[in-house]
Amino acid sequence: MINKITALWLGPVGHTWILNLRRLPATLERLRIDRQLEEALATGGDPLHLVKVFAISERAAVRYAANAQALLQPEPTPPADRRLQE
């Protein structure tokens, strides 16, 4: 986690900053999952990139990549009702 102070150096955020997260509905786990899925979407679902960036297992990277690719697919158009065309 970074904030506007820790973004300028390589230290962790403070204890108080973490305690402030407790009031939010998002957990650190949800934020981590969201960040990894967002990266998968941004790279078109490249599992190798996810392994390198997040140091996650190949299996997890493939799962994120598959989910991203499914989300990136255009939704199929339902066929037109033939009765309306006649």
Rank of each mutant, 00 (worst) to 15 (best):
G14P: 03
L31V: 08
G44D: 07
H49V: 14
T6M: 01
D34L: 05
A7E: 05
A40I: 04
K52E: 15
V51Y: 02
D46L: 11
L24H: 12
I5H: 05
R23G: 09
D46G: 09
G44H: 06
L84F: 07
A55V: 08
W9L: 00
Q36S: 06
P47F: 04
G11Q: 03
T43I: 03
A55L: 10
A65D: 03
L28Q: 14
D81E: 11
K4G: 02
L72Q: 07
I18H: 08
L28M: 11
L31N: 13
A65H: 01
F54Q: 09
D34H: 04
R82H: 03
V62A: 09
L50V: 04
E38L: 06
P12T: 02
A66F: 04
Y64N: 05
Q36N: 14
E38A: 13
A70E: 13
H49A: 15
L28W: 03
W9I: 00
G14I: 00
D81S: 09
P12Q: 03
S57V: 05
T77K: 13
H49K: 12
V51D: 03
G44M: 06
V62C: 09
R30K: 08
A55M: 09
A26D: 09
H15I: 02
Q85T: 00
A65I: 02
A66R: 10
R59E: 12
A26F: 01
A80Y: 06
E39G: 10
R63D: 12
P76L: 08
P74F: 01
E29N: 08
E29G: 07
A65T: 02
L37I: 05
V62P: 02
M1I: 00
Q36Y: 06
I33C: 13
L19T: 02
H15Q: 12
A68C: 11
L24M: 10
I5N: 07
R30W: 01
L8E: 13
E86A: 07
P74V: 02
A70N: 10
R23V: 00
N3E: 01
F54W: 07
R63F: 03
E86K: 04
L31G: 15
A70F: 08
D81N: 15
N3Y: 00
H15L: 08
A60K: 15
A65Q: 01
G45M: 02
R23C: 01
A7R: 15
L41W: 06
R23Y: 00
L19N: 11
W17V: 07
A66M: 07
H15A: 10
L19R: 11
A60G: 14
L37T: 07
A61T: 09
R63C: 07
Q36E: 10
R23D: 04
L24N: 13
A42F: 02
A66K: 11
P74L: 04
T43N: 12
R22P: 01
K52T: 12
T77N: 06
V13D: 11
R22C: 04
P78T: 09
R30L: 04
H15D: 14
T27N: 03
D81G: 08
L10G: 14
N20M: 05
L84P: 03
S57N: 06
G14T: 03
F54M: 08
T77F: 02
R22W: 01
L37W: 05
E58I: 14
V51E: 06
T16G: 10
A70W: 06
L10D: 11
T77S: 11
